[in-house]
Design a binder for these strands. Structure first.
Lengths: 334, 334
DNA sequence: TCTTCCAGTTACATCGTTGCAGAAATATCC
DNA sequence: GGATATTTCTGCAACGATGTAACTGGAAGA
């Protein structure tokens, strides 16, 4: 049915292997021969069979991307960007949603998903460093996010603590003194939540304020969770004059709920988020947030992973890269 | 390195093919033999090599999903859902972003992307029916969206016209008489834009109103475009008391801009969108919109495509399925 | 007892490509 | 000019699975 290399070889009057050599840019081919082959390829409309090539070469030219949920705006924007960057280097991206369960994360790390890819961009949420080390099957792996910072693994991340400190300081600089923080995870110190909480607390300390546990609300990083977290806060009667959502969706959920309850933003309560998803710019009021350098993260993580795959990466194992960040001061917290 | 079927065969003391038969549920195998093989598989931790299986069988158990931009919320939510549905039937989804260019759409339809998948879920935006028919390479194809409604192709879509009419009627029912519509595409009659515009006009007619071309603003379906469209409208001095964004992102961009300009929503201008992305519920005010039955679309499109792939689909070619819709009346247009 | 049949298993070819080793043709050297 | 490099090209095996056909051994039938 489909045209094979054999058909091309016959049409060009050369051997199968010569066709292969032409396609793989083998050095020693006479220009005339090369042209004959290329002509035959064009004439027959030949396209290489990727499956066969993969079987023989052991490479698929696909990167795996493991994240919890593609419908979350941050991940959707990141995935879109990663695909574009990968595409520019001749790779495709195969996405796997883990729903943030240990089981799915493990399956993505070792199972058949792994086979389909030459390397993995992995956002661990439930797995610890030792789980990953145990499951990791020899193929290159670059971690995204921050739950695991372990010298054994390459990691591309953002300046969570510094950025959280900067944005909290911004809130404080306008005179706010009771900054609620939404999206804390209990006991987390190494994950995004823990690192951002640390920055929040550093900013408090720098401003001479005590950390008040009543102001820290535990919730998932989703709009609905942000909304209920802020409702809970209002119901509890705890006073606050600003909200720091540990990511934008939480902050936007909180913004919505505050406005529903008739609380004026930013007059009565200022709000800041983290991620700078496209939606933040167009919220009403627009959301003050941190742009965590997504372009840089995409560029460097894909670059590093592909370099590892192709064996052209840096000598050092366990590279830790941090993208720069920028504050985006908007109307929700001027 | 990896354990192969041959290793399993040796360990179980049977032939290679017997192992294959066990894995493929071949009928005539003695239970004792089957058990021996299963034990050996478990002992060695064997996993089938998907690449080899694909080469031999010609199937990849992957579905291709072609859409313009994964970072658009509607597509992100749809993709996430499609992946879950496909996964439940043992398929993976490989996403390709076309950036809505003819070139990329064609490449996804015929090129190497096609090889990697057993069938395609395709959102044509630039290609016409004849382009698709010409490029289509024998493998199953299910169209998503509505740019192409052609009896030659399977199509899963939504009730664009009815839903647009219903939501426009809802705007009119509250006494609004000047409903601006954002996101029109010039000359489109078969695409989402054209169909929704038709519903808009039907609603006007039903209410005894004339269509005013000044109220229809051409723009891309993005937040920033929605914002500039509404600014353009304000600048032009055209009077309007409601806005229908042909999708939610446009409506949300418009909502933002109106509020920036000090226009009260919904008091002075009511706003409605289309798609019911998660963000709509949490906008401030929450966005009145149409829920186009995304679950049903995902379920039925993946179901149909897989049935076609496995040869268990309906006899009829060119099936056209329409999901039901629901209005979501919220605060932006009560 | 001999054939026939069928369950259960096996050997071999095959999918379309690339790696390896070597053959053939041409260039280089003393 | 003959041996030695170098360039150019080729054949075969292999990647790891599945399809086809054939083989084996025992039960059923004549």
């Amino acid at each position: 049915m489909a045209v094979t290399m054999n058909d091309v070889a016959r049409a060009a009057g050369v051997s199968l292997k010569t066709v292969s050599n032409v396609l793989n840019d083998y050095e020693f081919i006479r220009p005339a021969t090369k042209q004959k082959v290329l002509d035959a390829i064009a004439a027959l409309g030949y396209e290489a069979n990727l499956t066969a090539r993969s079987l023989r070469s052991g490479k698929t030219r696909m990167l795996g991307l493991v994240l919890s949920d593609l419908s979350a705006p941050y991940y959707a924007e990141l995935a879109s960007l990663l695909m574009k960057v990968a595409s520019a280097r001749g790779y495709r991206v195969l996405v796997e949603q883990s729903a943030a369960t240990k089981e799915n994360e493990l399956a993505a790390l070792q199972g058949q998903f792994r086979q389909l890819t030459d390397g993995l961009l992995f956002t661990p949420l439930e797995l610890g460093p030792d789980d990953v080390a145990a499951a990791q099957g020899g193929k290159p792996l670059v971690l995204l996010g921050e739950h695991i910072a372990d010298p054994r693994f390459d990691l591309v991340t953002m300046k969570n603590t510094e950025a959280a400190q900067a944005i909290t300081s911004h809130l404080l600089s306008s005179g706010r003194r009771r900054v609620a923080v939404l999206g804390a995870a209990p006991g987390d110190t190494t994950g995004s939540s823990g690192l951002r909480m640390l920055g929040y607390r550093q900013a408090l300390t720098a401003a001479g304020l005590e950390f008040d546990p009543d102001l820290a609300v535990l919730c998932q990083w989703r709009r609905d969770a942000g909304a209920s977290a802020v409702r809970q806060l209002l119901d509890s009667g705890v006073q606050f004059d600003a909200v720091f959502g540990l990511n934008d969706t939480v902050a936007l959920g909180a913004l919505h709920e505050l406005q529903m309850q008739g609380v004026k933003v930013p007059e009565e309560v200022a709000i800041a988020g983290f991620d700078d998803i496209d939606e933040a710019r167009f919220a009403s009021p627009s959301l003050t947030t941190v742009a965590p350098g997504m372009d840089e993260i995409a560029e460097r993580s894909v670059g590093l992973l592909i370099d590892r795959i192709e064996g052209t990466g840096p000598e050092a194992e366990g590279l830790q890269l941090e993208a720069g960040f920028e504050l985006r001061i908007r109307d929700s917290a001027p």
